[in-house]
Nucleic acid binder design. Structure first.
Lengths: 211, 211
DNA sequence: GCTTGCCTACACAGATCTGTGTAGTTAGCT
DNA sequence: AGCTAACTACACAGATCTGTGTAGGCAAGC
Protein backbone atom coordinates (compact mmCIF):
# COMPACT_ATOMS: atom_id res chain seq x y z
CA UNK A 1 0.00 0.00 0.00
CA UNK A 2 1.84 3.11 -1.23
CA UNK A 3 1.65 6.13 1.08
CA UNK A 4 -1.84 5.95 2.55
CA UNK A 5 -3.74 8.88 1.10
CA UNK A 6 -7.38 9.66 1.83
CA UNK A 7 -8.40 6.18 0.88
CA UNK A 8 -6.72 4.68 3.97
CA UNK A 9 -8.47 1.81 5.66
CA UNK A 10 -11.67 1.59 3.68
CA UNK A 11 -14.36 0.24 5.95
CA UNK A 12 -16.67 -0.53 3.05
CA UNK A 13 -19.74 0.49 4.98
CA UNK A 14 -20.60 3.52 7.13
CA UNK A 15 -19.11 6.90 6.45
CA UNK A 16 -16.70 6.37 3.56
CA UNK A 17 -13.61 8.50 3.98
CA UNK A 18 -13.31 9.43 0.33
CA UNK A 19 -13.91 12.93 -0.94
CA UNK A 20 -17.04 11.84 -2.76
CA UNK A 21 -18.15 10.09 0.38
CA UNK A 22 -17.81 13.25 2.42
CA UNK A 23 -19.81 15.16 -0.16
CA UNK A 24 -22.57 12.56 -0.08
CA UNK A 25 -22.62 12.61 3.69
CA UNK A 26 -23.01 16.36 3.66
CA UNK A 27 -25.80 16.14 1.08
CA UNK A 28 -27.63 13.70 3.29
CA UNK A 29 -27.21 15.83 6.38
CA UNK A 30 -28.24 19.01 4.61
CA UNK A 31 -31.50 17.46 3.50
CA UNK A 32 -32.03 15.72 6.82
CA UNK A 33 -31.64 19.04 8.58
CA UNK A 34 -34.22 20.73 6.43
CA UNK A 35 -36.78 17.95 6.87
CA UNK A 36 -36.19 17.16 10.54
CA UNK A 37 -36.14 20.79 11.53
CA UNK A 38 -39.18 21.90 9.58
CA UNK A 39 -41.44 18.91 10.01
CA UNK A 40 -40.09 17.26 13.13
CA UNK A 41 -37.90 14.23 13.67
CA UNK A 42 -40.66 11.72 14.28
CA UNK A 43 -42.73 13.04 11.42
CA UNK A 44 -40.05 12.35 8.81
CA UNK A 45 -39.12 8.80 7.80
CA UNK A 46 -35.84 7.70 6.31
CA UNK A 47 -37.65 6.83 3.08
CA UNK A 48 -38.69 10.46 2.81
CA UNK A 49 -35.15 11.68 3.38
CA UNK A 50 -33.70 9.33 0.77
CA UNK A 51 -36.39 10.17 -1.75
CA UNK A 52 -35.87 13.90 -1.23
CA UNK A 53 -32.15 13.59 -1.94
CA UNK A 54 -32.75 11.22 -4.82
CA UNK A 55 -30.69 8.37 -3.42
CA UNK A 56 -31.71 4.89 -2.46
CA UNK A 57 -32.55 4.08 1.11
CA UNK A 58 -29.74 1.53 1.04
CA UNK A 59 -27.17 4.23 0.40
CA UNK A 60 -28.48 6.28 3.27
CA UNK A 61 -28.10 3.30 5.57
CA UNK A 62 -24.57 2.83 4.27
CA UNK A 63 -23.72 6.25 5.68
CA UNK A 64 -25.73 6.12 8.89
CA UNK A 65 -26.39 2.81 10.59
CA UNK A 66 -29.75 3.90 11.99
CA UNK A 67 -32.17 6.77 12.10
CA UNK A 68 -30.96 7.49 15.59
CA UNK A 69 -27.42 7.98 14.30
CA UNK A 70 -28.84 10.33 11.69
CA UNK A 71 -30.61 12.31 14.39
CA UNK A 72 -27.41 12.62 16.40
CA UNK A 73 -25.43 13.69 13.34
CA UNK A 74 -28.14 16.23 12.50
CA UNK A 75 -27.84 17.81 15.95
CA UNK A 76 -24.05 17.68 15.95
CA UNK A 77 -24.03 19.52 12.65
CA UNK A 78 -26.24 22.19 14.24
CA UNK A 79 -23.62 22.59 16.96
CA UNK A 80 -21.57 25.07 14.95
CA UNK A 81 -18.90 27.29 16.46
CA UNK A 82 -19.99 30.72 17.66
CA UNK A 83 -18.72 33.26 15.10
CA UNK A 84 -16.35 35.81 16.55
CA UNK A 85 -17.26 39.46 16.32
CA UNK A 86 -15.52 42.81 16.43
CA UNK A 87 -18.39 44.40 18.24
CA UNK A 88 -18.43 45.19 21.93
CA UNK A 89 -19.47 42.47 24.40
CA UNK A 90 -22.76 44.18 25.18
CA UNK A 91 -23.53 44.64 21.52
CA UNK A 92 -22.76 41.00 20.90
CA UNK A 93 -25.20 40.00 23.61
CA UNK A 94 -27.99 42.19 22.32
CA UNK A 95 -27.23 41.13 18.76
CA UNK A 96 -28.12 37.58 19.72
CA UNK A 97 -31.76 38.61 20.22
CA UNK A 98 -31.80 40.54 16.99
CA UNK A 99 -30.40 37.54 15.19
CA UNK A 100 -33.11 35.11 16.28
CA UNK A 101 -35.67 37.76 15.48
CA UNK A 102 -34.31 38.16 11.98
CA UNK A 103 -34.08 34.40 11.47
CA UNK A 104 -37.68 33.97 12.48
CA UNK A 105 -38.83 36.84 10.29
CA UNK A 106 -37.00 35.21 7.39
CA UNK A 107 -38.90 31.98 8.11
CA UNK A 108 -35.66 30.22 8.98
CA UNK A 109 -36.57 29.49 12.58
CA UNK A 110 -39.02 26.98 13.93
CA UNK A 111 -37.98 26.82 17.54
CA UNK A 112 -34.64 25.62 18.83
CA UNK A 113 -33.64 22.36 17.13
CA UNK A 114 -32.10 21.04 20.32
CA UNK A 115 -35.13 21.80 22.45
CA UNK A 116 -37.39 20.36 19.80
CA UNK A 117 -35.37 17.16 19.75
CA UNK A 118 -35.49 16.83 23.52
CA UNK A 119 -39.24 17.37 23.43
CA UNK A 120 -39.87 14.95 20.60
CA UNK A 121 -37.66 12.15 21.78
CA UNK A 122 -38.72 12.49 25.41
CA UNK A 123 -35.79 10.39 26.56
CA UNK A 124 -33.29 12.01 28.92
CA UNK A 125 -30.79 9.22 28.23
CA UNK A 126 -30.74 9.92 24.49
CA UNK A 127 -27.60 11.47 23.08
CA UNK A 128 -29.76 14.27 21.76
CA UNK A 129 -30.42 15.36 25.33
CA UNK A 130 -26.70 15.49 26.04
CA UNK A 131 -26.01 17.53 22.93
CA UNK A 132 -28.83 19.92 23.76
CA UNK A 133 -27.48 20.42 27.24
CA UNK A 134 -23.98 21.05 25.92
CA UNK A 135 -25.35 23.61 23.48
CA UNK A 136 -27.22 25.52 26.15
CA UNK A 137 -24.27 25.45 28.47
CA UNK A 138 -21.90 26.71 25.81
CA UNK A 139 -24.18 29.65 25.15
CA UNK A 140 -24.47 30.44 28.83
CA UNK A 141 -20.68 30.47 29.13
CA UNK A 142 -20.42 32.64 26.05
CA UNK A 143 -22.78 35.14 27.68
CA UNK A 144 -20.83 34.93 30.91
CA UNK A 145 -17.49 35.62 29.26
CA UNK A 146 -18.93 38.60 27.42
CA UNK A 147 -20.37 39.92 30.68
CA UNK A 148 -17.05 39.54 32.42
CA UNK A 149 -15.44 41.46 29.57
CA UNK A 150 -18.10 44.12 29.99
CA UNK A 151 -17.37 44.28 33.73
CA UNK A 152 -20.92 43.39 34.65
CA UNK A 153 -21.77 42.63 38.27
CA UNK A 154 -22.83 39.06 38.94
CA UNK A 155 -21.88 37.84 35.48
CA UNK A 156 -22.60 34.22 36.26
CA UNK A 157 -26.15 34.77 37.39
CA UNK A 158 -26.87 37.35 34.73
CA UNK A 159 -25.67 35.00 32.02
CA UNK A 160 -28.30 32.49 33.07
CA UNK A 161 -30.98 35.17 32.98
CA UNK A 162 -29.97 36.22 29.49
CA UNK A 163 -30.01 32.61 28.32
CA UNK A 164 -33.50 32.12 29.74
CA UNK A 165 -34.63 35.24 27.93
CA UNK A 166 -33.24 34.04 24.63
CA UNK A 167 -34.89 30.63 24.80
CA UNK A 168 -38.12 32.25 25.96
CA UNK A 169 -38.05 34.55 22.95
CA UNK A 170 -37.62 31.62 20.59
CA UNK A 171 -40.52 29.74 22.15
CA UNK A 172 -42.80 32.75 22.14
CA UNK A 173 -41.99 33.61 18.54
CA UNK A 174 -42.93 30.09 17.57
CA UNK A 175 -46.20 29.89 19.46
CA UNK A 176 -47.34 33.46 18.87
CA UNK A 177 -45.95 33.55 15.35
CA UNK A 178 -44.56 36.96 16.11
CA UNK A 179 -40.97 37.96 15.45
CA UNK A 180 -41.56 40.96 17.71
CA UNK A 181 -41.03 38.83 20.78
CA UNK A 182 -37.30 38.93 20.01
CA UNK A 183 -37.36 42.70 20.40
CA UNK A 184 -39.33 42.34 23.62
CA UNK A 185 -36.66 39.99 24.95
CA UNK A 186 -33.93 42.34 23.79
CA UNK A 187 -35.45 45.17 25.76
CA UNK A 188 -35.63 42.98 28.83
CA UNK A 189 -32.00 42.00 28.32
CA UNK A 190 -31.09 45.64 27.99
CA UNK A 191 -32.84 46.44 31.28
CA UNK A 192 -31.06 43.59 33.03
CA UNK A 193 -27.70 44.78 31.71
CA UNK A 194 -28.36 48.32 32.91
CA UNK A 195 -29.31 46.99 36.33
CA UNK A 196 -25.96 45.20 36.42
CA UNK A 197 -24.19 48.53 35.92
CA UNK A 198 -23.26 47.83 32.35
CA UNK A 199 -22.96 50.84 30.09
CA UNK A 200 -24.96 50.32 26.95
CA UNK A 201 -24.83 53.27 24.62
CA UNK A 202 -21.28 54.53 24.90
CA UNK A 203 -19.82 51.10 24.23
CA UNK A 204 -16.72 51.34 26.39
CA UNK A 205 -14.59 48.60 24.90
CA UNK A 206 -15.76 49.10 21.36
CA UNK A 207 -13.26 49.79 18.63
CA UNK A 208 -14.58 52.06 15.93
CA UNK A 209 -12.96 52.43 12.54
CA UNK A 210 -11.80 56.02 11.95
CA UNK A 211 -14.66 58.37 12.88
CA UNK B 1 -90.54 11.02 25.81
CA UNK B 2 -91.25 12.21 29.35
CA UNK B 3 -89.38 15.29 30.52
CA UNK B 4 -85.95 14.99 28.92
CA UNK B 5 -83.49 14.53 31.73
CA UNK B 6 -79.78 14.05 31.22
CA UNK B 7 -80.49 11.22 28.84
CA UNK B 8 -81.83 13.68 26.27
CA UNK B 9 -81.00 12.97 22.65
CA UNK B 10 -78.70 10.02 22.95
CA UNK B 11 -76.38 10.10 20.01
CA UNK B 12 -75.24 6.56 20.63
CA UNK B 13 -71.72 7.38 19.62
CA UNK B 14 -69.29 10.15 20.60
CA UNK B 15 -69.36 11.70 24.03
CA UNK B 16 -72.37 10.14 25.77
CA UNK B 17 -74.13 12.69 27.90
CA UNK B 18 -74.83 10.34 30.77
CA UNK B 19 -73.13 10.67 34.13
CA UNK B 20 -71.25 7.42 33.58
CA UNK B 21 -70.30 8.70 30.15
CA UNK B 22 -68.82 11.84 31.61
CA UNK B 23 -66.83 9.79 34.10
CA UNK B 24 -65.48 7.57 31.36
CA UNK B 25 -64.56 10.57 29.28
CA UNK B 26 -62.64 11.99 32.18
CA UNK B 27 -60.88 8.71 32.81
CA UNK B 28 -59.79 8.63 29.20
CA UNK B 29 -58.55 12.20 29.28
CA UNK B 30 -56.74 11.75 32.56
CA UNK B 31 -54.77 8.82 31.19
CA UNK B 32 -54.26 10.50 27.84
CA UNK B 33 -52.82 13.52 29.58
CA UNK B 34 -50.35 11.47 31.54
CA UNK B 35 -49.13 9.53 28.51
CA UNK B 36 -49.14 12.35 25.96
CA UNK B 37 -47.44 14.76 28.30
CA UNK B 38 -44.77 12.40 29.60
CA UNK B 39 -43.92 10.51 26.43
CA UNK B 40 -45.08 12.84 23.70
CA UNK B 41 -48.13 12.85 21.48
CA UNK B 42 -46.62 11.09 18.50
CA UNK B 43 -44.90 8.52 20.68
CA UNK B 44 -48.15 7.26 22.19
CA UNK B 45 -50.67 5.30 20.16
CA UNK B 46 -54.37 5.01 20.84
CA UNK B 47 -53.87 1.30 21.54
CA UNK B 48 -51.51 2.23 24.34
CA UNK B 49 -53.99 4.69 25.80
CA UNK B 50 -56.85 2.19 25.72
CA UNK B 51 -54.72 -0.58 27.19
CA UNK B 52 -53.50 1.69 29.98
CA UNK B 53 -57.08 2.54 30.98
CA UNK B 54 -58.18 -1.04 30.55
CA UNK B 55 -60.86 -0.34 27.98
CA UNK B 56 -61.17 -1.52 24.41
CA UNK B 57 -59.96 0.63 21.59
CA UNK B 58 -63.51 0.64 20.26
CA UNK B 59 -64.79 2.36 23.38
CA UNK B 60 -62.12 5.02 23.10
CA UNK B 61 -63.17 5.71 19.53
CA UNK B 62 -66.77 5.95 20.71
CA UNK B 63 -65.76 8.92 22.84
CA UNK B 64 -63.33 10.58 20.49
CA UNK B 65 -63.71 10.22 16.73
CA UNK B 66 -59.97 10.41 16.05
CA UNK B 67 -56.63 10.75 17.73
CA UNK B 68 -56.59 14.35 16.63
CA UNK B 69 -59.80 14.99 18.56
CA UNK B 70 -58.18 13.36 21.56
CA UNK B 71 -55.17 15.64 21.24
CA UNK B 72 -57.38 18.70 21.10
CA UNK B 73 -59.40 17.55 24.12
CA UNK B 74 -56.16 16.88 25.96
CA UNK B 75 -54.95 20.42 25.39
CA UNK B 76 -58.35 21.95 26.15
CA UNK B 77 -58.35 20.15 29.47
CA UNK B 78 -54.95 21.65 30.20
CA UNK B 79 -56.42 25.08 29.61
CA UNK B 80 -57.67 25.42 33.18
CA UNK B 81 -58.74 28.72 34.72
CA UNK B 82 -56.08 30.74 36.52
CA UNK B 83 -56.73 30.34 40.24
CA UNK B 84 -57.44 33.62 42.04
CA UNK B 85 -55.16 34.65 44.86
CA UNK B 86 -55.27 36.94 47.88
CA UNK B 87 -51.66 37.89 47.45
CA UNK B 88 -50.44 41.15 46.01
CA UNK B 89 -50.08 41.48 42.23
CA UNK B 90 -46.30 41.49 42.38
CA UNK B 91 -46.27 38.44 44.62
CA UNK B 92 -48.62 36.67 42.25
CA UNK B 93 -46.27 37.37 39.38
CA UNK B 94 -43.19 36.13 41.19
CA UNK B 95 -45.12 33.15 42.51
CA UNK B 96 -45.60 32.00 38.94
CA UNK B 97 -41.86 31.32 38.64
CA UNK B 98 -41.76 29.58 41.99
CA UNK B 99 -44.67 27.42 40.92
CA UNK B 100 -43.05 26.10 37.76
CA UNK B 101 -39.87 25.55 39.73
CA UNK B 102 -41.71 23.49 42.32
CA UNK B 103 -43.59 21.55 39.67
CA UNK B 104 -40.37 20.66 37.92
CA UNK B 105 -38.67 19.70 41.16
CA UNK B 106 -41.63 17.43 41.90
CA UNK B 107 -41.14 15.81 38.50
CA UNK B 108 -44.52 17.07 37.37
CA UNK B 109 -43.21 19.24 34.57
CA UNK B 110 -41.80 18.18 31.25
CA UNK B 111 -41.93 21.42 29.33
CA UNK B 112 -45.07 23.32 28.43
CA UNK B 113 -47.68 20.95 27.02
CA UNK B 114 -48.86 23.56 24.53
CA UNK B 115 -45.38 24.33 23.26
CA UNK B 116 -44.60 20.64 23.06
CA UNK B 117 -47.74 20.03 21.02
CA UNK B 118 -46.89 22.85 18.62
CA UNK B 119 -43.39 21.45 18.23
CA UNK B 120 -44.49 17.88 17.75
CA UNK B 121 -47.34 18.51 15.36
CA UNK B 122 -45.42 21.12 13.36
CA UNK B 123 -48.61 22.33 11.72
CA UNK B 124 -49.58 25.98 12.26
CA UNK B 125 -53.09 25.23 11.02
CA UNK B 126 -53.71 22.58 13.65
CA UNK B 127 -56.17 23.44 16.41
CA UNK B 128 -53.39 22.71 18.88
CA UNK B 129 -51.53 25.76 17.60
CA UNK B 130 -54.60 27.95 18.16
CA UNK B 131 -55.08 26.63 21.69
CA UNK B 132 -51.41 27.16 22.48
CA UNK B 133 -51.58 30.74 21.23
CA UNK B 134 -54.71 31.40 23.29
CA UNK B 135 -52.99 30.02 26.37
CA UNK B 136 -49.93 32.19 25.97
CA UNK B 137 -52.02 35.25 25.29
CA UNK B 138 -54.18 34.66 28.34
CA UNK B 139 -51.13 34.49 30.53
CA UNK B 140 -49.68 37.63 29.02
CA UNK B 141 -52.93 39.47 29.73
CA UNK B 142 -52.97 38.09 33.25
CA UNK B 143 -49.48 39.50 33.78
CA UNK B 144 -50.53 42.80 32.27
CA UNK B 145 -53.57 43.16 34.51
CA UNK B 146 -51.49 42.41 37.57
CA UNK B 147 -48.92 44.99 36.47
CA UNK B 148 -51.61 47.60 35.96
CA UNK B 149 -52.87 46.84 39.45
CA UNK B 150 -49.31 47.26 40.73
CA UNK B 151 -49.06 50.59 38.91
CA UNK B 152 -46.09 49.48 36.88
CA UNK B 153 -44.81 51.65 34.07
CA UNK B 154 -45.22 50.15 30.60
CA UNK B 155 -47.36 47.28 31.79
CA UNK B 156 -48.06 46.02 28.30
CA UNK B 157 -44.44 45.66 27.29
CA UNK B 158 -43.34 44.37 30.66
CA UNK B 159 -46.01 41.68 30.58
CA UNK B 160 -44.50 40.34 27.40
CA UNK B 161 -41.05 40.31 28.95
CA UNK B 162 -42.28 38.39 31.98
CA UNK B 163 -44.04 35.88 29.74
CA UNK B 164 -40.84 35.34 27.76
CA UNK B 165 -38.95 34.79 30.99
CA UNK B 166 -41.44 32.21 32.21
CA UNK B 167 -41.37 30.18 29.02
CA UNK B 168 -37.61 30.45 28.92
CA UNK B 169 -37.38 29.10 32.44
CA UNK B 170 -39.54 26.10 31.54
CA UNK B 171 -37.41 25.31 28.49
CA UNK B 172 -34.14 25.68 30.37
CA UNK B 173 -35.33 23.53 33.25
CA UNK B 174 -36.21 20.81 30.77
CA UNK B 175 -32.97 20.87 28.81
CA UNK B 176 -30.61 21.50 31.73
CA UNK B 177 -32.63 19.31 34.07
CA UNK B 178 -32.23 21.99 36.68
CA UNK B 179 -35.12 23.41 38.68
CA UNK B 180 -32.83 26.27 39.67
CA UNK B 181 -33.50 28.02 36.38
CA UNK B 182 -36.89 29.00 37.74
CA UNK B 183 -35.19 30.94 40.52
CA UNK B 184 -32.86 32.53 37.97
CA UNK B 185 -35.88 33.66 35.98
CA UNK B 186 -37.58 34.89 39.13
CA UNK B 187 -34.60 37.09 39.92
CA UNK B 188 -34.66 38.50 36.42
CA UNK B 189 -38.37 39.17 36.76
CA UNK B 190 -37.74 40.90 40.05
CA UNK B 191 -35.11 43.13 38.45
CA UNK B 192 -37.44 44.02 35.61
CA UNK B 193 -40.22 44.87 38.07
CA UNK B 194 -37.90 47.13 40.06
CA UNK B 195 -36.83 48.86 36.88
CA UNK B 196 -40.50 49.56 36.16
CA UNK B 197 -40.81 51.36 39.50
CA UNK B 198 -42.74 48.59 41.14
CA UNK B 199 -42.28 48.26 44.89
CA UNK B 200 -41.46 44.68 45.74
CA UNK B 201 -40.90 44.20 49.43
CA UNK B 202 -43.46 46.42 51.07
CA UNK B 203 -46.32 44.94 49.08
CA UNK B 204 -48.48 48.07 48.74
CA UNK B 205 -51.87 46.55 47.93
CA UNK B 206 -51.41 43.47 50.02
CA UNK B 207 -53.96 42.60 52.65
CA UNK B 208 -52.53 40.85 55.64
CA UNK B 209 -54.64 38.96 58.16
CA UNK B 210 -54.26 40.45 61.67
CA UNK B 211 -50.55 40.84 62.40
C1' DG C 1 -9.49 -5.27 -19.58
C1' DC C 2 -10.50 -6.40 -15.17
C1' DT C 3 -11.15 -5.79 -10.38
C1' DT C 4 -13.14 -3.06 -6.77
C1' DG C 5 -16.20 -0.19 -4.49
C1' DC C 6 -20.17 2.67 -4.51
C1' DC C 7 -24.43 3.15 -6.17
C1' DT C 8 -29.52 1.82 -7.58
C1' DA C 9 -33.76 -0.72 -7.72
C1' DC C 10 -36.63 -3.53 -5.48
C1' DA C 11 -38.50 -6.80 -2.59
C1' DC C 12 -39.33 -8.00 1.91
C1' DA C 13 -39.60 -8.88 7.02
C1' DG C 14 -41.68 -7.38 10.96
C1' DA C 15 -43.39 -3.90 13.77
C1' DT C 16 -46.63 -0.25 14.62
C1' DC C 17 -50.17 2.92 13.70
C1' DT C 18 -55.08 4.75 12.87
C1' DG C 19 -59.52 3.54 12.28
C1' DT C 20 -63.55 0.20 11.42
C1' DG C 21 -66.61 -3.80 11.50
C1' DT C 22 -68.87 -7.39 14.03
C1' DA C 23 -70.56 -10.49 17.29
C1' DG C 24 -71.34 -11.28 21.91
C1' DT C 25 -71.67 -9.88 26.89
C1' DT C 26 -73.07 -7.19 30.79
C1' DA C 27 -75.83 -4.02 33.57
C1' DG C 28 -79.51 -1.06 34.36
C1' DC C 29 -84.37 0.17 33.63
C1' DT C 30 -89.18 -0.70 32.91
C1' DA D 1 -88.38 -10.95 32.01
C1' DG D 2 -87.09 -8.35 28.44
C1' DC D 3 -85.23 -4.29 26.19
C1' DT D 4 -81.55 -1.10 25.48
C1' DA D 5 -77.18 0.97 25.59
C1' DA D 6 -72.60 0.54 26.52
C1' DC D 7 -68.75 -2.18 26.71
C1' DT D 8 -65.43 -6.09 25.29
C1' DA D 9 -62.83 -9.05 22.33
C1' DC D 10 -61.02 -9.66 18.12
C1' DA D 11 -60.09 -9.48 13.50
C1' DC D 12 -58.83 -6.75 9.85
C1' DA D 13 -57.75 -3.13 6.27
C1' DG D 14 -54.38 -0.18 4.84
C1' DA D 15 -50.80 2.82 5.67
C1' DT D 16 -46.22 3.73 7.36
C1' DC D 17 -42.05 2.82 9.63
C1' DT D 18 -37.15 0.92 10.40
C1' DG D 19 -33.89 -1.94 8.71
C1' DT D 20 -31.97 -5.76 5.59
C1' DG D 21 -30.94 -8.68 1.63
C1' DT D 22 -29.87 -9.18 -3.15
C1' DA D 23 -28.83 -8.63 -7.88
C1' DG D 24 -26.97 -5.74 -11.04
C1' DG D 25 -24.99 -1.23 -13.09
C1' DC D 26 -21.27 2.04 -13.56
C1' DA D 27 -16.96 4.41 -13.10
C1' DA D 28 -12.14 4.75 -11.47
C1' DG D 29 -7.76 2.78 -10.95
C1' DC D 30 -4.58 -1.19 -11.57
Amino acid sequence: MPAGQEKSTQVGVISPRTVAGEAMRERILETTDRLFYRQGIRAVGVDTVAAEIGISKRTLYNYFPSKDALVVAYLERRFTPIPTSERSPVEQILDAYDRVGRLFAADALRGCPFVNAVTELADPAHDAAKIALAFKERRRLWFRDLLVAAKAKGADNLAGQLAVLLDGAIVQMLVRNDAGMAEVARQAASTLLKAASVKLASAPTRRRAKP
